[in-house]
Design a protein around this nucleic acid. Sequence first.
DNA 1: TGGTAATGTGTCAATTCGACACAATGTTTT
DNA 2: AAAACATTGTGTCGAATTGACACATTACCA
Lengths: 236, 236
Amino acid sequence: MNRYAHAKRMLVAIDCIIFGFDGEELDLLLIKRNFEPEKGNWSLMGGFLNEDEDLEDGAERILYDLTGLKNIYVEQIATFGKVDRDPVERTLSVVFFALINIKDHDQEAVKAHNAHWITLGKKPKLIFDHDIMVGRALEHLRYNAALHPLGFELLPEKFTIPQLQKLYEAIYDMKLDRRNFSRKILSTKLLIDTGEKDNNSTTKKANLFRLDKARYQQKFYSFWHFMPDPALPESL
Amino acid sequence: MNRYAHAKRMLVAIDCIIFGFDGEELDLLLIKRNFEPEKGNWSLMGGFLNEDEDLEDGAERILYDLTGLKNIYVEQIATFGKVDRDPVERTLSVVFFALINIKDHDQEAVKAHNAHWITLGKKPKLIFDHDIMVGRALEHLRYNAALHPLGFELLPEKFTIPQLQKLYEAIYDMKLDRRNFSRKILSTKLLIDTGEKDNNSTTKKANLFRLDKARYQQKFYSFWHFMPDPALPESL
DNA sequence: TGGTAATGTGTCAATTCGACACAATGTTTT
DNA sequence: AAAACATTGTGTCGAATTGACACATTACCA
């Protein structure tokens, strides 16, 4: 038990990288800090982990506090632990990333926190190691969006295939062939044609699709993905 | 600054999942604890993060302490933070996984820690949430071994293609076609034929290959992998 | 010296992929 | 009202990749 007695207790922060999609580019929800430390500079949304709170609950609390949203897509990415990463006091930061439909958030709550949606390409310099965190989050998004049907979290419930394509083009910063993309997406049988049309369009109105949620759950691990499903052995 | 004053400081542990490969199956290096808490039960190798120590340095210290090895493959997987995961006191655990060549470790150091190599299929029940950690580590290994040339970390410097195949079969718990596997691996141009033969064999001696390390670095992100390399934008 | 076991290499059909063309729809312009 | 324009839906075709399978080679052993 001596081990416990001699070990150092330290602060644990939670920082959230919040991705949205405005129809053309990926956006981040960032805070213009009106509090110390680093008042006046940009940072991720964050907070300290409470004594009686699980990590995931902490992340959800912080995200709810800023956006007013619950049940959004949240995933832990990594923990940052350099000794001097926070100049005030040694603080570990557990980083989460969240994908939200940019139309859904509570505008009042966002304004109250002095938060702003910023296009990824125009991201200002962030405090501490937050720039590295964003880089890691983007890498994570690129990895997982190719292997899992993650992208749908960033779109409204009903969306068109050209919208979905623009999203993937924004994530990977590349152009994709319209016809091949459509063929590949439809071959997953993950989309259901609602029969409705996108009336926002000024030219030919595209078909609106929605996710087949049951199939989505079932295919989470095999979408665009050639590995055996990571079924764990009985003993685990 | 008040935020800092009111936040709770807590213990931070590091736990390591150490994978090895015995030529037939995946193995884990586990501790039969001769210290409290949970004395007599099995656990992962771990320890507390020191005050003046980066996370990765802590993981390397703990791994060196147990195996006598440095410069091994180590990767952070996730942080576990359930409030009651450690019954003694609230403790976060940052989990790392390490891949080592099972022949290389320091036998004395391992014995001194009462550690043992256990075949994954015969893993005993572990303490706390360590079973879940092992599950997550295996999932991580399966993910990444398909996308990156990770497997080589588990093999000696010179290895044969049939050895490599057995490793992949152990990781994914499935049989692969010998001829197609060979074709796929060789098509990566990642292996260099040393010209030597494997003299351990009692039948036809297989060719010994080694990794083309330069190409390995270069191809880390495109090996068996169809996404664009995650090159980050200038701003990150 | 022939039998056995494991390795190295080749073939072939089915599928998938990437590049590309054309028809259909809805708006705007003349 | 018709022509021009922008965007969407669908099809084709050759090339590359994949999965299933066969055969020759090497080394040990009886």
